[in-house]
Write a protein that binds this DNA or RNA. Sequence first.
DNA 1: TGAGCGAATTCGACG
DNA 2: AATTCGCTCA
Length: 631
Amino acid sequence: MQESKYLKGLNQAQKEAVQHENGPLLIVAGAGAGKTKTITHRIAHLIGSGIPPSKILAVTFTNKAANEMRERVRHLLPAGTRMPEVSTFHSTCVRILREFGRSVGVIERFTIFNRDDQTRAVKRALKNAGMEDENPRYFIAAISREKGSGVSHTTYAREARALRAHDVAVVWQCYEEELVKASALDFDDLLLKTLELLEHSERTRGLLQNRWSHLVIDEYQDTNVVQYKIARLLLDSGRNICVVGDLDQCIYTWRQARLENLLGFERSFPGTKVVTLKENYRSTGTITAAANGIIEKNKNRIPKQLLATREVGEPIYLFEARDELDEAWFVAEKVQELIKRATPPREIAVLYRDNFQSRVLEEAFLSLQIPYRVVGTRFFERKEVKDVLSYVRASLNPNISDMERIIATPPRGIGQATFAKMVANKERELSPAARAKVMAFRTSLERMKKALETLPLSEVLRFILEESGLERMYKEKKDREEAEHFENVQELVNLSVRYDSAMPPSGAHSLLEEAALQSDQDEMRDDENRVSLMTVHASKGLEFENVFVTGLEQGLFPSRRLDEHTDPEEERRLFYVAMTRAKERLFLSFARARLRYGAREPAVPSEFLGDIDERLTAWAGVGEAAESVIE
DNA sequence: TGAGCGAATTCGACG
DNA sequence: AATTCGCTCA
Ligand SMILES: Nc1ncnc2c1ncn2[C@@H]1O[C@H](COP(=O)(O)OP(=O)(O)OP(=O)(O)O)[C@@H](O)[C@H]1O
C-alpha cells in the first residue's frame, strides 16, 4: 500500500493506529501524546482510502472537544470533501431520537429541558408529590445520577428500599409525568432513550448499524455506562470501533463516567488492537516533568510517564496574589505583556476551577481593553436570552413552561390567577379587563407565529423583541445592567442570522436545538482572535501556547466539596489536565484571601503547588509587585 | 396584579 | 456582594 499523505508527521505507533484496518482499536496515551491528532488522521485516512464520510461517526463528550475534532478533520481533508459526523454524544442522540424515537414513545418534535426547565418541572413534581418544602436540587442530582448509571425510574422505584430512596422514586415518577406532559426529554434522557430505542427496536438498531461502519470515540475515559452500551449496540459485525483515552484525564466521574469502560475495553471487544503513545509532543520538558510529578501522586492509577520530546523551555511561573483582584490584575497584565510581545491572543487561555471566578478576570481584562471571550455554556442560560427563546418556543408551540416565563416579562397585567385560568381554558370566568389582556397576549403570540412561519429568523427575532415589548423594556431602563442584557439579546439576533437562509420555521427549530444542547455560542461565530477564559473542564482536549491556571487554593482547587459520588483523586487529575494544556508557558497563581459569598476569607495555597519540584518553577512576583520574568 | 422589600441563596465541573 | 426568591400590601 502506498504511503498515505495522512501518515506524514506521525510517529511509528501513531501510524500503526492510523493504518489499522478492521476490528476494535484502543489508543491509550497521556496528555499531549497526539491522541486527537491520531484519530483525526485516522478519519482522514479512512476517507482517503474510500470509506464514505457519511459512514463514519465520531463522538466525544463536550462541545468544545467535538468542535476541535471537527475542525482538525476539516483541516486535513481536501477542501470540499463531505464531512463525517463529528459531534457530541448528546447531539447524535437527539438526531437519532428525532428520526426513530417514535417506537419508544418520543415524538419527532420533542423539546429538550435545560437546567431551568428541569428545575421548574421538579418543583411541580414536588408539589404534586406533596413535598413542596424539599430542595429540588437534591432530587435533580439524584435522578440525574441514576439516569447516568442507566437506571430508569421504573427500575429505581422497584428497588427503592431506603426512606429517602422512596421519596426520590415518588418525585421521579411525578417528574416523568411532567416530562410527558411537555413532550420533553432531559439531558440524561437523550442518552437513556437512545439506549432504550437501540435495545428495544431491532429494526432501528439494524438501520443505524448499517448507517455507520466506523465508530470513533474520543475522551473514552469520560464515557458513562449508557454511552458504552449505545456504542456497543451501534456496532455492526465489522466491529470497527476506535476509542481513545487517558485514565489520568478522567474528570467526569461526577457525571457517572466509568473508568471501567476504558479498563475493560479489551475484554468487551475481544481481538482489540492496542496502541500506546508515550511521547508528549505538546509541552516543554519542564511542563511535562511537572505534570508527571503531579499525577504520580495518585494511588489509584496505572503508572505511566509522559516522555518529553521538546526542549526544557521556560520555568513554570508562580504568582502569589493578595486577593482575587490582585490575581486578576496580575493575569491581565501578564497577558498584555505577552500580546505586546506578539503572542496572538488566541494562544492564551486563562483557566479556573469554578465559573464564578471568571467575573473578576473579566473586569480586569475590560479595564486593560484586552480582547477576550468567556468560553462556556452560559450564554443560553442568561435570563434575557432565555426570555427571547421562550417567546419563540411559545409561539411555535404553546406550552406551560415557556408561557410561565414570558407572561410577566415584560409585565402585562396578567398575574397568577389570570394565568391559571388562561391555561386551564377558563377564560370565560375572567373579568372583561383580564380577558382583554389575555386576548392581546394570544394575538401577540399568533403574530409571532406568523412571522416565524414566513420571515428569516433574525427578522423574526427583531419582530418578537418589538411585539413582546421586550425592546421597550430594555430601552426604558438605562442602567449598565439593562444595557448589557440588551447587548446579549442583540448578540442572539446576530447569531440567528446564520439560520436566515433556512426555510421558515426550520431556522427557529435549529436555533432552539443549539440552545438546548448548550452549544457554545462562540463556535457558532467566526473565529476571533481573543484570549480564552474558561473552566478547566471546558479546556480538555484543547491546547494553547500560554496557559494561566488561577485560584490554586485549598478548598477552591482542589475543591472542598467532596461527596461520596466523586472519586477523591479526580481533582488532581483535573489539575493535570489544566497543566497539560500549555505548550510553551504555564502560569500558576493563587490569592492569600478571596471573597466568598461577599466575605473576605483567608486562603491557603493549593497542596498541588507543593507537589511541583521547585527546580521547575520561578516566582513571577508576590502581591502587587509582579515582575517581568518571561524569557 | 405587581412593585417593593427583606430573606435566601450563590460559588461544582458539562450536555 | 450581588442576585434571585417569595411574600406583603397598596
Ligand atoms: N508525531 C508527532 N510529531 C509532532 N507533533 C505531534 C505528533 N503527534 C502529536 N503532535 C502534536 O502534539 C500536540 C498534542 O496532540 P493532540 O492534541 O492530538 O494530543 P492528545 O493526546 O489528544 O492530547 P490531550 O489528551 O492532552 O488533549 C498537538 O499540537 C499535535 O500537533
